[in-house]
Amino acid sequence: MNNMFKTLSSAPLSAKFGMIVIFTYLVVAVFAPLIAPYGEREILGRAYELWSSEYPLGTDNLGRDMLSRLIYGARNTLGLTLTITVLAFLLGGILGMIAAALGGWVDQILSRIVDVFMAIPSLIFALLILSIFGTSMPYLIATIVVLDATRVFRIARATAMNVAVMDYVEVARLRGEKLGWVIRKEILPNITAPLLAEFGLRFCFVFLFISALSFLGLGIQPPTADWGSMVRDSSTLISYGDVTPLIPAGAIALLTVAVNFVVDWMLHRSSGLKDVS
């Protein structure tokens, strides 16, 4: 515990800033109903009301309170992103480590399949699936999980491969250890640092990806509050010089910047340690 505190306090300013921002977002997401002045879907006034003491950030195109939707948006978007990233990590990470530990034809087949998926730009792929299946949540989640899992597979396989060639893994195999043990005890503990950093990067990617889809009107569907669609709904205001649409967009940007700062620091730390040993 003490140790962890030491590491955290040694972080550069940008990483500390990042951690504070992430923490704030989490608090807002968890306690959204307590913090938000109005309900998520409550229609309160006229459309596009200006900023006032009653509606601090004005109202949206249907007359709902912007600030409240912004707060609920944190919950919806973050929740969805986390779900997708975790699922993608389970799927891609486990398959990647299996491919690296087993090698041979299992690795060949899995890697070739992933190569094909990686050869399609993910936004294009997602749009294709959405046009076929319509904008339904389960399909959206499944699509992004699969697409993202291919990227996780790549990195998990590559890092696990570096560990799998180590003599201690060979020793475990020679001892007669089962695949599960080799992966859990020999490989996984040695790739947690890069995987954790990758989790941060993937999180950002998924977050931006969902926001982009929502912005295009193809992601999270109304009336659920979501930052991407809030930008879309209020985008006409920008032509009057009103900065309101930039607020949800900025909320997205701020979080990804924060996560990236933390990830950058983590990567720097793990590579720095490697240089010394």
Partner: peptide, 15 residues
């Protein structure tokens, strides 16, 4: 049993 050339990579650094 086997003992190999490079003790640095023969021991799991996390164990």
């Amino acid at each position: 049993q086997m003992i190999s050339q490079l003790p640095d990579i023969a021991l799991n650094p996390r164990q």
